[in-house]
Structures are given as structure tokens and as C-alpha cells.
């Protein structure tokens, strides 16, 4: 994962509450199989609205913003990580909001995007500062936001998430390297204490007729898979 230390950038003001992940990344683009290049679908409906002024992220200087300042409950709803991939692909590395949808919030940390929860008063100051179009600096090490007028806002990030972002940690690699023995031991214990949580061969036989018949288009290519 791309490490995160500090970002200095203009911040795009998006003063709306409840911008859910369907608005951030509409469902019809979820058919795409890759995580790259999704920025062009970010806020798609908002950016392609007839008879409306250009969306904030399409207006200079905010089209180069790497910080987004928005309202409460940002990223609620669907768990689609595409919402974060689209933000990151567009160039957004920091989102400032009063609150976040929980799954979106967790997804950010796995993609080098920093979601910062600010109290209402600080969020209002950041929003006002963003509107000026002057750059601000978000620093993760010191957990501070330096506004254009020199004022400093403080924030707090979960210590583990903070360390992981600063280091660009490969979490899966770390678990495999450090905790494999503990996982093995847990599994061995659970097989004794709750054996029904491990599907034995006789139970899995329920699926034995699967993974054979083709399903829909291109059966030949599927038959070759694996």
C-alpha cells in the first residue's frame, strides 16, 4: 500500500451530508473488474448533470484537489471499495468529515486514503478554508491540519491505522509473517471445541455436482479455467 505521511493541497469543499457510496460510485460501474482507472466515474451523476453548474471537482482549482471536505455520514451504505478506489484514482488522499460510514472508513485505510473525523466546529472552519481555494496541509505524523491562515486543527487516528498508513503496511503479509502460528493453534483448538464450524468431507459432498456445468456465456473459456 502507498504510504501516507503528509499532503499539501487545495481542498475541495463539498458541503453535503449523507453522500453515500452509491452517489460516490454508482452501482452500474461496479461491473468493471479492475481497481484502476475508476476516477472517471467518481460522483458520476453529480458530474454529468444537465442544466447544472460544473461539479466542484471539475472546477479549477479544485480539479487538482487532493483533500475533500464534506458533511456528516460520508460514505455510508454499500461496502463497495470502488468508492475509495475512485477517490484515490482521482487523486484524493484525505477526506475531512464530521462522520463516516464504517465500512467506507475501514476501506480508506487499506488504500492509502486518510479519513479524518472532525468535530462540527473544526469541520466548519476547514470547510470555510477550503472555499478560499488556498492550500492546506494535512500531516499524519503530528495529526494536525494547517489551515491557510496558519491556524492548526488537531485530529486523532487509531494508533494501529496510523502506523499502518505511515509505513504503507502490507497487512496481509504482516499477519502471514507474524501470526501464522497463532492462527494454526486457534484452528486446531476450534476443530475440537466447535467441529461443526469446519465443513467435513461428507457435508461438502452437498456441492459435489457443482463447478462442472457451464453457466451462461462462454462455457468453453470457463471449462478451461483453473
Amino acid at each position: 500500500m502507498q504510504p501516507f505521511r503528509s499532503v499539501t493541497s487545495v481542498a475541495a469543499p463539498l458541503p453535503e451530508a449523507d453522500l453515500d457510496t452509491d452517489i460516490i460510485f454508482p452501482a452500474r460501474f461496479l461491473l468493471l473488474l479492475d481497481r484502476e482507472g475508476l476516477g472517471r466515474h467518481l460522483f458520476h451523476e453529480r458530474r454529468h448533470k444537465a442544466d447544472a453548474p460544473p461539479f466542484v471537482l471539475d472546477r479549477p482549482p479544485f480539479d487538482r484537489a487532493r483533500i475533500l471536505v464534506t458533511g456528516r455520514n460520508f460514505g455510508g451504505g454499500s461496502s463497495r471499495e470502488q468508492a475509495v478506489w475512485a477517490l484515490a484514482d482521482f487523486g484524493i488522499r484525505v477526506v475531512l468529515a464530521e462522520s463516516f460510514g464504517e465500512i467506507f472508513h475501514a476501506n480508506c485505510f487499506r488504500n492509502g486514503v486518510l479519513p479524518i473525523v472532525l468535530p462540527a466546529e473544526d469541520q466548519a472552519r476547514a470547510m470555510a478554508a477550503a472555499g478560499t481555494g488556498a492550500p492546506m496541509t494535512v500531516d499524519l505524523e503530528s495529526e494536525t491540519i494547517a489551515l491557510p491562515d496558519g491556524a492548526i486543527l488537531r485530529f486523532a487516528i487509531d494508533p494501529y491505522r496510523r502506523r499502518a498508513l505511515l509505513a504503507g503496511l502490507d497487512e496481509i503479509g504482516a499477519i502471514l509473517a507474524d501470526d501464522a502460528a497463532a492462527i494454526d493453534a486457534f484452528e486446531a483448538r476450534q476443530r475440537r471445541t466447535a467441529p461443526w464450524l469446519h465443513l467435513a468431507r461428507d457435508r461438502l459432498a452437498f456441492f459435489d455436482d457443482l463447478n462442472r456445468a457451464p453457466d451462461g456465456a462462454e462455457p468453453e473459456s470457463r471449462a478451461e479455467a483453473g
Binding site: L31, L210, N211, A217, E218, A225, G226
Partner: peptide, 30 residues
């Protein structure tokens, strides 16, 4: 066969991955 190219590709990708890693895959006509 699935008419939409993207949807067909997504569904077949799931089946390919399931087969590759030995996970039961339940087809839509099952």
C-alpha cells in the same frame, strides 16, 4: 447466455476464480 458483456465477464470471472481456488460456485440456474 448473459446478454451484457460486462455482466457476463463478471459472472464468469467469479466462476473461474472459484474453480481455480477450489471454492464451491453455485451457478445462476442451480
Amino acid at each position: 447466455p448473459l446478454p451484457d458483456g460486462l455482466a457476463a465477464r463478471q459472472v464468469s470471472r467469479l466462476q473461474e476464480n472459484a474453480t481455480r481456488f477450489g471454492i464451491p460456485y453455485i451457478p445462476m440456474r442451480d
